[in-house]
Amino acid sequence: MQEVVQQLVNGISLGSIYGLIALGYTMVYGIIRLINFAHGDIYMIGAFVGYFAIRTFHLSFLPALLAAMAVSAVLGMVIERLAYRPLRNSTRIAALITAIGVSFLIQNTALLAWTPDPRSYPDVFPLRTYEIGGVYVDNRQIAILGVALVLMVVLHYIVNYTQIGRAMRAVSQDADTARLMGIDVDRVISFTFALGSALAAAAGVLVGIYYNRIDPTMGTMPGLKAFVAAVLGGIGVIPGAMLGGLVMGIAEVAVVALTESTWKDAVAFAILIVILLVRPAGLLGRQVREKV
């Protein structure tokens, strides 16, 4: 029993990381129907900005987190301006391929600039471990889950109850009509990217502190798994990303606990295939028939 609870804790803490990255993924998709494959790399950049903020500029945890989010938000807007905006009216596959290209560009630039050497993250968030009846939980796991939940609520609020959120939803429904109604579509999309990138950066810093190891390729695998989490929860649905992340984390841990640990990575993508076959709109997504 104690083992089951411990595994559940492991799964939730892993899943909250996926959820945190998936939030940004799903929001960008929700607004402009683009799967931003560079998202995992922005997450990596965020981790590095946080690293340098702490190491070089001696910032404490919270200022470093905000700095990472700010820098990544700007980077996200720059990427959108340079790489995606010129393709706004071309096919979706062109934008998708560009996103993959941007991902490679960021990753390889980072490899050149920072070397592929893994770095250990500065210890700015003192670790405290709590034992409750043989189950171990630490304050970093709680922080990650907490931050993910808070961001999910904030995001949900922004999208559903603010002026800019209304504009975002309008753009997602029909960009041309939104423009006719006087909405500055470019600004809305820019804002969406800034928000999504800031979320990715927050995840990067938290994960860097949690595992104490960052390197320029750290975004690839979590990026892919967060993508699966977003699809699982229903891509474009904000609470869905969080739910998808948690389900993924728990599923991975369950696979290790019940079968061979070799199958751990396979399960993520098996979930993707199953969800696309059985319920392509995801757990919380509405089933909409594509208009022909």
């Binding site: 083992e3 595994q7 492991n10 803490s13 750290m218 640990s261 990575d265």
Partner: peptide, 13 residues
């Protein structure tokens, strides 16, 4: 797998 960062599931087992 090489590159993994989370080993808690295996370690709990």
């Amino acid at each position: 797998s090489e590159g993994d960062q989370d080993f808690r599931a295996q370690l709990t087992k």
